[in-house]
Design a protein around this nucleic acid. Structure first.
Length: 946
RNA sequence: GCCAGAGUGGCGGAAUUGGUAGACGCGCACGACUCAAAAUCGUGUUUCGAAAGAAGUGGGGGUUCGAUUCCCCCCUCUGGUACCA
């Protein structure tokens, strides 16, 4: 009798794998099926050790690694450490332990934990970004970026805490105060190095089309980059030679710009100071703004601002003189730092305008509706006219329940124009309107629901009402004092509308032009028609963008939400920026021959307000010795995201002392990027974007010949506690992988993690449930005592199906259902009393990627000489997959009333006869007349009985 | 607010080019074994109902012979995120 003892078995096999170097990769060969590169996001080696989330994602990649290798691929499956970073430095500040030391200890702890999980990574490839042999190449690449002008220096605005003497991250600022010491945060300008990532903004968007990533991850990246197409337009300042240049995505609304706003930091504010009569108030506002962090400015609910009294700008389209404000909702860093405000069509401008009582002028009327329902639509065509005050006025009459057209009807009653004029005047008090002066709006409606008739359509029109070019359906208030009149048409199709337009000299052209506009803009129903805009009235909003921009001498332009990447950090524990400054202050790369440009050790970690490296005597001496007296070193270190932006390029050639990776190795492992990358979705924005940027930049410099780093990307979910809550130290609900492996064994922990939920979903770690997988593994182990001489054909057939299913599910990373299928198989075998040696061996091969220790143990007892990872993945025979009998569900009127067994090649008649022969089924049929029979082969038979 | 994802038994989850809802596992109940318990094995386990049957995949409506799956409206949860002009 075999007794399952996970501790003994796992200990034995871990040693064996290590002694026999089972997971060593020969990086210079190709597998018989080719090479495959699987990569995990490498961890930051924190003092807390490996957490359950790591356990899940590394197991997931390990399974694919083992599967691919058994299939005949040569697989690179490396690991490493993102070992520079703030926690080690904070720990140093607290305890005095040098970061290099604490990091070393943490890494060896991680290393032990990896081994404990039975991961098949080739740990001889280990890299650590804080290792000089690694960061030498980070610096070398920085040098190449520098020499190719991919990197530049400018000032950066940061949150500064005077009391902590250090830069504070946005998220560490609470109400304008430092999270730690509660003192007030100030904005400080400091010099910094930037990567020109915005130069690649378009490539970073278009490149997403070429990779197999989750769609939502792609969408998020596109939104982060945030490309907007628009125009730059100059506004002259009255009585001045100055111009205010704005960027706008909506130049079509230029006529609606009723005021302007400058960022408080905008240089024009200072330049125009002499003309401003309320400069005290202005200065006060500016200094208030400087106290706010960007986060505060972005979060402030109530709009604030100050009018620049004495300053007016001229709207280049309408020639109107409009006021100029400063307000902190406009940021200096975005666009041009100045906006034209169009309160009728922008929510923020609208709020501001309401608060400061500024005019709101609608200039776009919108077309809304559903474009895929051509069979029936109704149109509401809205008229616009001028009232006594020469204001433009809009009205929708449809929601009042009658439709006006000469010869049209109201509640079945013929109406003439005179009657309608009288009704409108009674209703609104206005008299001087002209029918069809201008058409502004049009609706395509949804088809009415059954039985609802037109009522729903009307409801709908009311719902969308007039306005205003945002999804908000609010600004009905705008039209309250405005006169209105409207025309509504209801026909079945557009061609019918065209042929039914009454022959009215002034109106017919208007309606026709609306229909033309409608055709043009139906593809983009969010756009509308320009109104209130002089000669441009009637243009589609889309066309108007370029036409109006050109007419006022503006320039079409795109801007991005994405900003250049600031990589300077005033920290110790990071990669030194390999730059020195000559006595004139010019920056120079230290040169390849001086790499690695070592991180000095003679520093104090306690923040002094300067970068820790500035206190290093050794670094300054080194610089002067190499470059001459008066030369100074750069004392900032790099953002750790730089280290992790290229690490996947190092793994194929970790020991190369003369290149970051040899051309041959690049060719062998990275012909077109990493084959599969697995990691958490929290890295969607920063890490993944920076790594893509690095790849594209390096490609452009000719260093590599592919331009997307990760061909396939998959995420794993979070591992939460049994109540579905996030694990955290403060909640005290952190589950330690070591404990779990100790109690249940790595095989059970691995298998349970994969079984509990789909990989990309969050997993609930429930100790009560893991016993199920433990029992499963025990049962598998017990199969050694149930070997039979004679082969059971049912088992053999099921095994072939299982081989196919498990293989396919691994390829799709559907590990949870693969485990479930294996459980079913074992249940079957136990029921049947056992299986042959050969069958058991094939089965444990399927299991081995999940539970490698116990699988190897069983395989050994069956006579295998080597670890299963070095064996071949079993094959299935297509002819074994077919069933002799299939079960078909039978429905009567769509309700399941039973099932029948038929042969796979049964005809519809055979199936029908079998069904009728079934008493339980037939009793439902015999009562009525068979109206219809639907037979979906091998799936279902539905009999419709009346 | 916006963007993305999700909502199925007591619990984790399975099943979507529309075709037998609840696989597999946990838990629970009963039985076997045992002096007893644990472990193990067997049977059962969506709800209501004695049964026949009916209801049922967050709620409401629609399309269909047939909807967890497709469409419309609404609710809840999770993640991300912003005065981006």
């Amino acid at each position: 009798m075999h007794k399952y003892d996970h501790k003994e078995i796992e200990k034995k096999w871990k040693r064996k794998w290590s002694d026999e170097k089972v997971y060593a990769v020969d990086k210079d060969t190709k597998g018989k099926k080719g090479n495959y590169y699987i990569l995990d996001m490498f961890p930051y080696p924190s003092g807390d050790g490996l957490h359950m989330g790591h356990t899940e994602s590394y197991t997931a990649s390990d399974i694919l690694y083992r599967y691919k290798r058994m299939q005949g691929y040569n697989v690179l499956h490396p690991q490493g450490f993102d070992s520079f970073g703030l926690p080690a430095e904070n720990y140093a500040i607290k305890t005095g332990t040098p970061p290099a030391e604490s990091t070393e200890i943490n890494m060896s702890n991680f290393f032990k934990q990896w081994k404990m999980l039975g991961l098949g990574h080739d740990f001889s490839n280990l890299i650590a970004t804080s290792d000089p042999d690694y960061y030498k190449w980070t610096q070398s690449l920085f040098g190449k970026f520098f020499q190719n002008d991919f990197v530049y220096r400018k000032t950066d605005t940061v949150n500064w805490c005077d009391s902590c003497n250090t830069v504070i991250a946005n998220e560490q600022v609470e109400d304008g105060r430092c999270e730690r010491c509660k003192s007030e945060i100030i904005q400080k300008e400091i010099p910094a190095w930037f990567f020109r990532i915005t130069d690649f903004a378009d490539d970073l968007i278009s490149g997403l089309d070429t990779v197999d990533w989750p769609e939502h991850t792609k969408k998020k990246q596109v939104n982060w980059i945030g490309k907007s197409d628009g125009a730059e337009i100059d506004f002259d300042v009255l009585d001045s030679d100055k111009k205010i240049t704005v960027f706008t995505t909506r130049p079509d609304t230029l006529f609606g710009a009723t005021y302007m706003v400058l960022a408080p930091e905008h240089e024009l504010v200072q330049q125009l100071k002499d003309q401003v009569s309320n400069s005290d108030e202005v200065d006060g506002y500016i200094s208030n703004t400087q106290k706010k962090s960007e986060l505060d400015r972005l979060e402030s609910k109530e709009k604030t601002g100050v009018l620049l009294e004495g300053i007016s700008a001229i709207n280049p389209a309408s020639q109107a003189q409009i006021p100029v404000f400063i307000a902190d909702y406009v940021l200096a860093g975005y666009g041009t730092g100045a906006i034209m405000a169009v309160p009728a069509h922008d929510e923020r401008d609208f709020e501001f305008a309401q608060k400061f009582d500024l005019p709101i002028k609608p200039v776009v009327a919108q077309i809304t509706g559903q474009k895929d329902e051509p069979d029936f639509f109704s149109t509401g065509v809205y008229g616009i006219i001028q009232n006594e005050n020469e204001e433009y006025l809009i009205q929708d009459f449809t929601n009042r329940g009658f439709y006006w057209w000469p010869g049209g009807t109201k509640e079945g009653q013929e109406l003439d124009e005179e009657t309608l004029r009288r009704e409108i005047t009674e209703e609104t008090g206005y008299t001087n309107f002209e029918v069809g002066d201008m058409v502004t709006e049009m609706f395509i409606d949804y088809p009415p629901l059954k039985g609802e008739g037109f009522a729903r359509g009307r409801k709908h029109l009311k719902f969308y009402k007039i306005q205003i070019n945002s999804e908000e359906k609010v600004p009905l208030e705008l039209t309250e004092q405005e006169i209105d009149f409207g025309i509504t048409l209801h026909w079945k199709s557009e061609s019918e509308i065209r042929s039914n337009i009454p022959d009215h000299p002034s109106r017919k052209p208007v309606v026709l032009s609306v229909i033309d506009q409608f055709e043009k803009t139906i593809a983009q129903p969010e756009l509308g028609i320009v109104v209130n805009s002089g000669e441009f009235d009637g243009l589609s909003s889309q066309d108007a963008k370029s036409v109006i921009t050109e007419a006022v001498g503006g320039r079409m332009k795109s801007t991005y939400r994405l900003r250049d990447w600031s990589i300077s950090r005033q920290r110790y524990w990071g990669c030194p920026i390999p730059i020195v400054y000559d006595p004139e202050g010019q920056a120079h790369f230290v040169g390849e021959e001086n790499l690695p440009w070592l991180l000095p050790t003679d520093v104090d970690f306690v923040p002094t307000g300067e970068s820790p490296l500035s206190k290093s005597k050794e670094l300054h001496e080194r610089t002067e010795k190499l470059f001459g007296t008066g030369w100074k070193p750069e004392v900032d270190t790099m953002d750790t995201f730089v280290d992790s932006s290229w690490y996947f390029l190092r793994y194929p050639d970790t020991n190369n002392g003369s290149e970051f990776c040899s051309t041959d190795r690049l060719k062998n492992w990275l012909p077109s990027g990493v084959d599969l990358y697995i990691g958490g979705a929290e890295h969607t924005y920063m890490h993944l974007l920076y790594a893509r940027y690095f790849t594209k930049a390096m490609n452009k410099m000719g260093l590599i010949n592919f331009d997307e780093p990760f061909k396939i990307l998959r995420h794993q979910g979070m591992v939460n506690d049994k109540d579905g809550k996030k694990m955290s130290k403060s909640k005290g609900n952190v589950v330690n992988p070591n404990d779990m492996v100790e109690r249940f064994g790595a095989d059970s922990v691995r298998t349970y993690m994969m079984f509990a939920a789909p990989l990309e979903d969050d997993v609930i770690w429930n100790e009560d449930n893991i016993v199920g997988t433990y029992r499963f593994i025990e049962k598998v182990f017990g199969l050694q005592d149930k070997l039979t001489e004679k082969q059971n054909d049912d088992i053999e057939k099921t095994l072939h199906k299982l081989i196919k299913a498990v293989g396919e599910q691994i390829e799709e990373l559907k590990y949870n259902t693969a485990v479930s299928d294996m459980m079913k198989f074992v249940n079957l075998v136990n029921k049947e009393g056992g299986m042959t040696k050969d069958q058991l061996l094939r089965f444990v091969k399927l299991l081995s990627p999940y539970a490698p220790h116990v699988s190897d143990e069983i395989a050994e007892s069956l006579g295998e000489r080597t670890s299963l990872v070095a064996s071949d993945w079993p094959e299935y025979d297509e002819s074994m997959l077919a069933d002799d009998v299939i079960t078909i569900g039978v429905q009567i009127n769509g309700k399941r009333r039973g099932d029948i067994q038929v042969s796979p090649d049964a005809t519809e008649d055979d199936v029908m006869n079998t069904a009728r022969a079934n008493k339980n089924i037939n009793k439902w049929v015999s009562g009525g007349e068979i109206k219809k029979v639907i037979y979906v082969p091998a799936k279902i038979l539905n009999i419709v009985v009346a």
